[in-house]
Design a protein around this nucleic acid. Structure first.
Lengths: 144, 144
DNA sequence: AGTAATGGTTCCACCCACTGGAAGGTCAAG
DNA sequence: CTTGACCTTCCAGTGGGTGGAACCATTACT
């Protein structure tokens, strides 16, 4: 299989597949003309990667998951651990976004959105600390 | 004010402030010794930027918000437009993350997490299209 | 006067996970 | 024999910073 075939079958852009080879996630063979020659197992790996990435696992997670995927004797607890860690990250992100949404939607509601120059959104962004109504997620600013 | 002062007062790292100067968000003066000399107005801008960024506005959004912030005659509708656009992005992100969370938490629940090598998480990631239970967010994979 | 601590400066490289594009080689069809 | 689809490599850029090296300025303490 050439890269175009695995791209269609896996749903990953060819560029991404080359990149995955670059960083050592797949190691396709080479044909005599220099083209990458993908085996069935490479396709499986790439499809696996596509699904894991679409679930938001980092490349590093994927590397570990792939190792476990290829290890016949792995313990399911290891995989569960990675998934649980990822679930925590998702929950953090969700909470952060929900807090942003809260604040921002309040501001948008308060804004007339007409031709007058008064705008509570800008007023809030410009306000000194302590002048704003309580906003829980402000603490998230330095939590990067 | 030197960069350390505005850093402390705005809560932004000095590196970030230099970066913001680089990309033209602030234009501090210079002292005779080459140090950046920040005015009160620069500090206000930086604090404004910090708050807008903490709400998840992109740098480009910030650039526009700053322009409006400095324009005495702007219409509040313009600001509202930017905020509404951002709110949409937040909602999309939220939906995507919630769908991921759903799928992943189902998988984690189904996984025994013991010493046996059977793992429904890996099984799902490896499954062919159509072999998996319905998962709404799969469509989000190409929606980047 | 020396020196150490604590600022400040520039510049260059790196992070993640790709993506775009240029310049060129290969292959099947008409 | 050319057209067009496909493949190759390599270099650069994205966003939003962050880390570090190498060096200058200021202040405080001996």
């Amino acid at each position: 299989m050439n890269i175009g075939d695995v791209s269609r079958l896996s749903g990953l852009p060819a560029k991404t597949i080359r990149y995955y080879e670059d960083i050592g996630l797949v190691e396709p063979l080479r044909s005599s003309n220099g083209y990458r020659a993908f085996r069935e197992s490479d396709l499986h790996k790439l499809a696996f990667l596509g699904r894991a990435r679409s679930l938001g696992f980092t490349i590093d997670d994927c590397r570990n998951l792939l190792k476990l995927y290829e290890d016949r004797d792995r313990a399911s607890a290891d995989v569960r651990q990675i998934a649980l860690g990822h679930l925590d990250r998702i929950d953090e992100k969700l909470a952060e976004l929900a807090a942003m949404r809260e604040t921002l939607s309040h501001l948008v509601e308060a804004c007339a959105g007409d031709h007058r120059p008064d705008c509570p959104i800008l007023a809030d962004l410009a306000a000194e600390e302590g002048e704003r109504p309580v906003e829980k997620h402000r603490t998230a600013r330095n939590a990067h």
